[in-house]
Write a protein that binds this DNA or RNA. Sequence first.
DNA 1: AACTTGCTAAACATGG
DNA 2: ACCATGTTTAGCAAGT
Length: 597
Amino acid sequence: MMTPQVITPQQMQQILQQQVLSPQQLQVLLQQQQALMLQQQQLQEFYKKQQEQLHLQLLQQQQQQQHAGSKQSKEQVSAQQLAFQQQLLQVQQVQQQHLLNLQRQGLLTIQPGQTGLPLHSLTQGMIPAELQQLWKEVTNAHVKEEHNNNNNSSSNNNGHRGLDLSSPATPKNPLLNQHASTNGQYMSHKREGSTLEEPSPNSHPLYGHGVCKWPGCEAVFDDFHSFLKHLNNEHALDDRSTAQCRVQMQVVQQLELQLAKDKERLQAMMTHLHVKSTEPKATPQPLNLVSSVTLSKSAHEASSPLSLPQTPTTPTTPLTPLSQTHSVITANSLHSVAPRRRFFSEKYNMPISPDINQNKDFYMNADVRPPFTYASLIRQAILESPEKQLTLNEIYNWFTRMFAYFRRNAATWKGAIRTNLSLHKCFVRVEDEFGSFWTVDDEEFKRGRHIQRGRPRKYATDESFDELLVQSPALVKNIQTSLGYGPTLSAAFQASMAENNIPLYTTASIGSPTLHSLAHAIREEMNGAMDHGNSNGSDSSPGRSPLPAMHHISVKEEPLDPDDHEGPLSLVTTANHSPDFDHHRDYDDDQGHDDML
DNA sequence: AACTTGCTAAACATGG
DNA sequence: ACCATGTTTAGCAAGT
């Protein structure tokens, strides 16, 4: 009732699952974030009180029992008390983590003057009709701008462009900028609406201590205006910002879920211990913010070390408004929903690295499913490794190390990893004398294709010969490097092989006659395989070593389908496959080609 | 509605 | 026989 625009978990989920947020949704999100801020403060205070109260009650209980002379139960109570305190601690940690995260992401700045604000005044001021209109305009500008980008430079470096905040990818669109100045400047627009949420004309939630607090930015500015300029230029409404926003949403939501879980547990414990809960259940009492002193103090402390390189660790105690969602969210909803949901980063696979890194700490500690596909994560794991290669077990370990979520249900996600490794073209297994490891073909990863089995799909494209090669994934999917190459070399070779599937053009292969001849051998082998017809059902046995003398490149199977591209593969095609052509033709182009044939 | 994609489970093979 | 590793298939859900 007092937070009419708080969206339900389902709605949230829906939004989260969408690939791109609409500006309206973003707006709602922003509003919600603001509301969160306040409610967090309130709830934090409440928790503090509650904690003290619980302590008192527990002490009383203990004393009573002591009076009764029951020594056993005294021990019991102590243990219970301990567990209870731990639980409280846990809840607090979740809260702290939440606030920390928000602050690190630059999405939460608790201004001392804000703490006492009534919620509605803030939220009301956020949604004037004109703002809606502005959003629309911004959206239009955004669409145009996006269009332009797609037309020219999207193919260049796009793999790392995505969220590379350090790169000055300035959208030079006057129209956009013009409107963007309203985009980031919601506060100046609603000046007459409410003065409260705008303590000073030169403040912005994303601006603190001369630093831009946009996630991962931390650019320093002398004055507020240059910051605003920066904000509008660098963090305008574009794909990147949207993606970051989505991640942040996810983070917030999962934290909320986590907190809900812990609160539930706490409630159960309290019930069990016969402690009367003072927690507001259905109707959360707007707590008076007597304690805003503490809070603003901690907030102040927290915001100052923002210039620290990575993760400010100042603990503060946020809370999320669970009151509205409480009834819907159950303890298991987090895990029952998550596995089925679609990971939204899959569309642009590559920008996950910055996202992962930004939220590393979070995912390491919070039992939250990372919003990335298995393929993305596996790739990340492999690419993070010094040699760009990992054994299966090392991949497992990376998952468990990096994500608290993957410390459970091992059978499930391990199986998923194996399936993904097998299924994705981009993952290439390499064998050496010590065993086998996996590498990533990043180009193929960007293509995002699966190995085709059974009825091949339509994409025997003209895109290149490599497509044909990889139509029979095994041709490059399994390579034995039992020759003298070190793992690095073999990985480099592997990568180059996989990169175009034709090693002629990769830097690794150029100037490497050995690899060159190796590639040649592969092609010969391929033709041989073609001559034998397709795999005739029975998969080829691994023992069959097709390149005996040469380099132990084993082709495990040839799901090459005659339907797809009959006729022997001409290596002339290979020659036509120029590196320029291949140069990061990404999605749009790719799909275009795919649809062609 | 058809197709694609990602996740999951399961069956199966292989090698240690 | 058991386990780890891989491969393959099928079914489901969700997105295009």
